[in-house]
Structures are given as C-alpha cells and as structure tokens.
C-alpha cells in the first residue's frame, strides 16, 4: 500500500507511477521522458557519491570532466537547480530545472531563468559589477586576456544597449526586451536533446507505454 502524497525525494532510488506522473504534470516532460531523465539522474548522482542526489562536484564532473576547481557559472546553475537550497540536487529539482531547457518551454521561462542566473547577488537587477565579474570569469575560464579598457568598453556597450532607463542596472523588464532583441543570448537555454531524452536514456523501470 503506497502513499501518493509528496514525500522526500532525497536518496529515493525508485519511484512509483504517481511520483512520475506528478513530475510530468509539473514539467514539459511525459511520464516516459521523466523515467528517461531518471536514468540520466542516476548516472550523474552516482558518479562520485552514490546517495541518490547530485552534489556540486558531480555536476562539475559532468560539465567539465573534472570535479575540481571553481567556476562561477557552475555555482549559479547549481544554486538554481537546488530549489530547496540544501546543497544537493534531488530528482524533482532536476526535472523542474531541465524543463525550462525543453525546446517547447515558453520563452518567458527561459528569459526568467537566464535573468536569475546572471543576477548574482539576487537583488532583482543585473548590476554592472556583476556583468564585469562574469566577463572576468569567462576570460579566466577560456584563458583569454582582455585589457581593462576593452573590458570597460564591452560593458559600456552592453549597458548602452540593455539598460534603457540608464540607472546603471538591468531590470527584469529591460532584460526581457534585450533578450528578445538578441535571441542568440538564450541559445544555451534550450537543449535539443530533451526532445529525444527517451531514446538517449531508455528506461526499463516501468513499462508505461
């Protein structure tokens, strides 16, 4: 006899149909696709510590092929996936966040997620200092050198374009208008793989089809 009330996802190794169906309802995925995502989740969550949740080092290992080092963007992605802010990504959080990256997810959701990623201090605005910090981080990541003058010029140009009310910070509305004008900014907010996730990670846990 099972209870179908939401229960803690942490360390949960198996799900019943009601769990999967609830996650499908809360996301862009079908039940089948949620099952497939669970296969991916199992792989990621057992790469270092097999405890049924994804630790930051495990996400880092998957994205950078090494569990070591610091990366500002990885930290931001991890924090946004970790809805409960308990330091690990649980399966339902994984499904919720990936749902934003679905090719059929509304543009609005992608714009909002990207805004939250770039609003490093979570003030409700993307500030000049934050953009600077992120450009410096990407330079370090890619071993590129940029003079201070060029860095300031890139940021000036970006703010001239995005900060319409010229208050030195980018509001959510300004970000939305800016992202719509420059759709390439949201390119990494769509993962075409998510359309074929059942093929990439076939699941035999349930036979739902």
């Amino acid at each position: 006899c099972f209870s179908h009330r939401p229960r803690p996802w942490k360390a949960q190794r198996r799900f019943d149909y009601a769990d999967l169906s609830r996650l499908a309802d809360e996301s862009r995925f079908t039940v089948n696709e949620v099952e497939a995502l669970f296969e991916l989740f199992k792989k990621l969550s057992s790469s270092i510590i097999d405890d049924g949740s994804i630790h930051k080092e495990e996400l880092q290992l998957a994205l950078f092929q090494t569990p070591y080092g610091e990366n500002l963007f990885l930290d931001r992605v991890f924090d946004l996936f970790d809805e409960r802010r308990n330091g690990v990504i649980e399966f339902d959080e994984f499904v919720h966040a990936l749902s934003v990256f679905h090719p059929y997810a509304p543009l609005e959701e992608k714009i909002d997620f990207a805004f939250r990623l770039y609003d490093l201090r979570q003030t409700g605005y993307i500030e000049r200092e934050e953009v600077k910090q992120m450009v410096i981080a990407i330079m370090m990541e890619s071993d590129m050198k940029l003079s201070d003058e060029l860095l300031e010029a890139i940021i000036d140009k970006t703010f001239a374009d995005a900060d319409s009310d010229k208050d030195g910070r980018i509001s959510k509305e300004e970000w939305k208008a800016f992202a719509i004008r420059h759709p390439s900014l949201l390119k990494n907010m769509t993962l075409p793989y998510l359309k074929d996730v059942s093929t990439i990670f076939p699941s035999f846990v349930f036979n739902t089809e």
Binding site: L40, L44, A62, L63, F64, N71, L72, F73, L74, D75, R76, V77, L98, F101, L117, Y118, V131, M134, V135, A137, I138, E141, S142, E149, L150, A153, I154, I155, D156, K157, T158, D161, A162, F178, H182, S184, L185, L186, K187, N188, L191, P192, Y193, V197, I200
Partner: peptide, 26 residues
C-alpha cells in the same frame, strides 16, 4: 580603439558551466 561590437552576455553565455548539453553526452 576600434569600436566594440561584442556584447558581454554573448561572451558570458559561452561558458562551459552554462552549457548543459554535455550532461547528455555519454
């Protein structure tokens, strides 16, 4: 100095940390 055409967010969005497609590469 040549006019800057680069957009900071275009640069930022190229980070490997933001490229989740590698999660799907087996």
């Amino acid at each position: 100095v040549a006019p800057v055409t680069m957009n900071a967010f275009e640069l930022i969005s190229k980070s490997q940390g933001l490229n989740l497609s590698s999660l799907f590469e087996k």
